[in-house]
Amino acid sequence: MKQNIKAIALFLFTTSFLISCSSDDTAAIDENTFGEAQLYFDNGVNGDKLILGASYTNSNNERLTINRLNYIISNIIFIKSDGTEYVYPKNKSYFIVSEESGINTINLTDIPAGDYKQIKFGLGVDNQRYLEGETAQQEFWDYATSLDMVWTWSTGYRFINFEGTFTSDSNPESINFQVHQGSNSATDNYREIMLNLPTTARVRMGDKPSIHIIADANVILDGINKIKLSDNINQAGTSAAIMGGENLVKIAANTQAMFKVDHVHNGSGTEH
């Protein structure tokens, strides 16, 4: 009897903890407060990490050595599950990601506290913004110039600067390639891209979620449209350049699939 009581008491003691546990209730969001967020662009090629100077072969059977990958990210919008959007102020919403300069992180401030399930951003500079020619845009112009993100012989931005060398069945000797995506006065190649966040990005005062995005450089030429560098070699045979025409329209379609959110870190101090 005594032993049974002891046993029961012990059992009860042990299981009482089951009841006592409780988790914190999620605090209500104070919409009058603001927090920060970070977008981290992790550049890759077809599932592998992008390493400048390393080679890979794409499905066009061309072997590329990438030496430069820079692109413009702009007009960032945070979207909640009910569809309400927070549009990051346009005059500070233009950024450049540059692998060679080690610029992969976009830090955003003064975002209204909330739970965000999607983000949207533009790849390049929207035509309206470019034609507005506002003061802030010119400062971005200087910044873009320093990172080789402007056309040289006409006015306008390069949305993507993708360069390196390559070999193919047509050119067994390695020659340069240059892919400069952008708009010109004939075509507007600016596109918006919407991404789902696998877990909610919780922006709070003192919290800074970090959204880890993977960018796949391979889809620029090897996406839903296949663009062969060997089809774009100049007459002298010294290099391949893709800087205008229908190819840019195709690239704009390809790059819709260039980005994907891998994960979201929540909390503070979660920077890479």
Binding site: Y130, L131, G133, W153, S154, T155, G156, N184, S185, A186
Partner: peptide, 15 residues
Amino acid sequence: FYDGASNSMQMLSVV
């Protein structure tokens, strides 16, 4: 410009 290198008054001087 003869090739339409710019379509913006404010930017054309850059060329």
